[in-house]
Design a protein around this nucleic acid. Sequence first.
DNA 1: ACAAAAGTGTTCTGTCTACACCCATGC
DNA 2: GCATGGGTGTAGACAGAACACTTTTGT
Lengths: 226, 226
Amino acid sequence: MTRLEDKSLYPVTVDSVVFGYAEGELKVALIERKMDPYVGKWAIPGGFMEGEETAEETAMRELLEETGLEDIYLEQFHTFSSHGRDPRGRTITVAFFALIDSEKYHLVATADASDAKWWPAYQVPPLAFHQDEMYAKALEALRLAIRTRPLAFELLPKEFTLTQLQKLYEQVFNIEIDTRNFRRKVAKMDFICSCEKKQTGLKHRPAMLYRYDSARYKEFSKENFF
Amino acid sequence: MTRLEDKSLYPVTVDSVVFGYAEGELKVALIERKMDPYVGKWAIPGGFMEGEETAEETAMRELLEETGLEDIYLEQFHTFSSHGRDPRGRTITVAFFALIDSEKYHLVATADASDAKWWPAYQVPPLAFHQDEMYAKALEALRLAIRTRPLAFELLPKEFTLTQLQKLYEQVFNIEIDTRNFRRKVAKMDFICSCEKKQTGLKHRPAMLYRYDSARYKEFSKENFF
DNA sequence: ACAAAAGTGTTCTGTCTACACCCATGC
DNA sequence: GCATGGGTGTAGACAGAACACTTTTGT
């Protein structure tokens, strides 16, 4: 039986591209690096796998350490093994995207980060570690995920308006959607159901609130979601 | 600057689920293990990343070593980091699926494999290393890839008939397709074009041969392919 | 002439698109 | 009453589903 110790061993890092949605805009959480390499540069949060952790555990730990985010939807989208990404040497990087209702959480810079903030998803600064390709892939993966599965709701509060949902799709896919056609389509999806109450405290006509019902979704089975 | 040597280091393996298509059936290439662990069991071909290889390079090297396959379409679909897959200890496993016209290549068992053969994709034996979950994910990834991108052609010879293409879709998605509707749909895709010649040497009416034109596909841009 | 697979059209139904105005609320 | 965003219907175009017979070749 071959021994694992005889094999090449590699440092493994886990990065998480965290998407949020606030003020009608798709956002991404980036941290400003406190340490070398790339001190002072903006980067996708992440860090080294340690001990017996799985990649998912590393992702959650690093997010908590660097941004204060917790209890967040995570999904793996690619593993990078090319050279030249980290000047200290080659790493294997498992990349995740994450989704969160960013109105609810503000980012807290801790540990390795000197700052952490939400950036507009279509105006990100140049990233450390040549993460620009990773970010582009994350956006693609986000679009695919939201087109094929009911994940848009992870970016919204539990109770949301149809206008919020529509604006979210418009942001994610960078398109304009006709309101009437959109609402007709949503009406057919009976897992998006009315809370039978309205917004309050606004200076205009209040909208009906809706919620996503995951149990009802399971009955419903279509190839494409949006 | 932190040093990479201070970090936890992990053995990395790369596995490739190779799909083929022959005799009107979707197939998968498996190897019979020559060595412990799981000696004599069937497994997805793969092995350890070595030295400065990227994951793609490892995948190609292992495929050549274990099955004799070369020059094959490869695409990453998931990275597994859970415990309990290898009795020797925890590994990080980057998984690929691969596509090949399996009529053209016969498998050759070499190195770590005592045998290598094409199995019907819907009748695979129990797999070593708890790879059953990996195989299920690979099938899902294959379906997604073929639904959204023109990859079916990787499984066919350069020149193919529409009946072959239809049967391939039927196999991959486990559905029946109406011939007339299928052909009408294909007719609209002008990147699937006639070679203006027919099959020869058959004992029945010969079919027109078609080919995939990737240059024309690039013009054509639809969200879903099939 | 027969066996075997190739190839072909029409109708119906449901979904997508385009498009403009009235409604409810706070101030 | 006005500013702000919420909410609604219809007609035409297009795409997907259902369905059965004729054609071409080799033997």
